[in-house]
């Protein structure tokens, strides 16, 4: 089912390449940077862009489930990690687990991993809600590949299949097929008629679809590629900002500025990390900043 909804803001009106590049850069930096301050900066930037894209409501759901997962990661890491010197709690000897030492370092490491996970999940949220799947596929489908067509077909047919499934279930229940009562095995067995009808109808439909595609010349020779996506100054501005961020991030990684040691004791945070993170966050926030200006000043709207 397509959950993307185009909204009236700058982020939803970007060239698909720009938004994909944003997602790619954030993902890459999340994986290469390990300093928690850098990661926090990335998270703030992504969060602000998601809010600017008016997808906060959807993001909240992702955050809720992700937070539960992060708490679990922190607890497990704190319980099972035996390194770290700042002991916060020491339990008496327990069967199987032995003595549990909860250290500040282990907690911090779990939290750091949690932030990384948060960024990845948030980026996926942005990908799901801020970019039309067809546009992404089209971007990679300049040659008209068949596998891309299959993915598009699946997106289109999935809702239809679900609708068919519910309808057939109702019809078969009216013929006495018991899907709500009996043991679980019986209920699964009783689904067979529904699945069987669904499969046969799908087969017939696929033949009709193939005929319609054939009648519209699919497979009659080389295909061309329809494209109406336009490049605007906003795309260039964002791409320049992202390139800067990428260069800074890779440079910091290469010379070791973005490394961070959790164990045996937490390393300190220097002003250098704060400055670099601020610059990176600001460059990644350009879409949100532009969106703010785009909403506030009609003149800027017409210029970018």
């Amino acid at each position: 089912m397509l959950i993307y909804r185009e909204k009236d803001n700058l982020i939803h009106k970007l060239h698909p390449f720009t938004i994909l590049a944003f997602i790619g850069v954030v993902l890459m930096l999340t994986l290469v940077l390990s300093h928690p301050v850098y990661l926090l900066g990335l998270f703030v930037a992504v969060g602000i862009v998601i809010i600017a894209a008016d997808n906060y409501k959807e993001w909240k759901v992702y955050l809720k489930y992700c937070s539960a997962l992060i708490v679990l990661i922190i607890i497990f890491n704190a319980i099972f990690s035996r390194v770290g010197e700042t002991v916060l709690y020491k339990s008496p000897r327990l069967p199987l687990l032995g003595e549990i030492r909860i250290t500040l370092e282990a907690l911090a490491f779990g939290a750091g991993m949690g932030v990384r996970l948060l960024i990845i999940i948030s980026v996926f949220c942005l990908y799901t809600y801020a970019i039309h799947p067809d546009k992404v596929l089209k971007l990679f489908n300049k040659g008209g590949s068949r596998s891309v067509l299959i993915i598009i077909l699946a997106t289109r047919l999935f809702p239809l299949l679900m609708k068919d499934f519910y309808r057939i279930t109702e019809v078969q229940r009216c013929r006495g097929v018991k899907l709500d009562t009996g043991t679980r095995w019986k209920r699964i067995r009783n689904l067979l008629p529904v699945i069987s009808v669904l499969l046969q109808s799908c087969l017939e439909r696929s033949l009709q679809l193939a005929e319609s595609m054939y009648a519209r010349g699919y497979g009659s020779g080389d295909r061309s590629y329809y494209n109406r996506e336009l490049w605007r100054p906003r795309d260039y501005l964002i791409l320049v900002g992202m390139s800067m961020c990428l260069v800074i991030g890779v440079f910091s990684t290469l010379i070791g500025w973005s490394n961070y040691n959790y164990y045996p004791r937490l390393s300190g945070i220097t002003g250098r990390e704060i400055v670099i993170t601020s610059i990176m966050t600001l460059t990644l926030m350009i879409p949100a900043i532009l969106n703010w200006g785009w909403n506030k000043w009609p003149l800027l709207r017409s210029r970018i």
Binding site: L2, D134, I152, L209, S212, S220, Y225
Partner: peptide, 18 residues
């Protein structure tokens, strides 16, 4: 059973692309 793409625009250009 004859529409292939997911958006109206893509469907209308489908034949022309072919």
């Amino acid at each position: 059973s004859q529409l292939v793409m997911s958006s109206v625009e893509q469907e209308i250009v489908f034949g022309m692309e072919n």
